[in-house]
Amino acid sequence: MRVYWEIAKRALSRQLTYRTATLAGLATNFYFGLLRAAVMAALYGARAQVDGISLQAAITYTGLAQSLIAVISLLGWFEVMRSINKGEISSDLLRPIGYFKFWLAQDLGKAAAQLALRGIPLMLGYALFFDILLPQTLWHWLAVFLALGLAVLLSFSWRFLVNLVGFWVTDATSIGRVVYIFSWFLSGFLMPLRFFPDWFVRLCYLTPFPHTINTIVEIYLGVLTPGQMLRALLLQLAWFVGLTLACSWVLRRGIRHLVIQGG
């Protein structure tokens, strides 16, 4: 356990050294947030509420979505794929630590850094520009951070799974990219899923994606009853466990494939 803690810490401090890049990324995320907020305001026009979401909530939503980009690597993460393609995986596998856990620890470290450097500052900036919603009770904040933590875990496990395609396909980044693009839509990153018809949202919830952004957003905005909230958190956990099991199964087959093919 100790070793994973160290790995996560290293990953975190590595992110801290890319501070200029982080600052620039923050500026970009914020700028796009401004545009998205303007679009929201114009869409709402004189409407007070749409599907249980007020304009204030909708603008808060754009801030949340923008601040989560870096935290859950929404624009794409292909490192495992790359290490498989380059053959670096063989040396990684020689280490006496679990491959999945090795990458998970790194991802958690990175996510923590991105939350501190980009996620939270972006929301603070939003608070300066707009009148955003804030959770009012400690319990509410707790639920938000719990959902966020679970979302990071869950997001990691589906991203890892996609990366494992690299065992069978030599240049799998394009496949990966297609999945990421779908995830923007299905996770509720482009628009809150509530804006879409019920049957469609139910379809989305058959995939792991909405359990990341959309769940965090709905919990944050307080549009869920306590019962629904608990259910949403449990679903996140269930998806994480399920996907992790899938990862370890696919990983085992991938390694066997690698050994047979001779790397």
Binding site: S174, I175, R177, V178, I181, F182, W184, F185
Partner: peptide, 12 residues
């Protein structure tokens, strides 16, 4: 696939 993914991005 790359062409598809590029097109897909803006279509979505």
């Amino acid at each position: 696939l790359e062409t598809l993914s590029v097109a897909l991005g803006s279509i979505i």
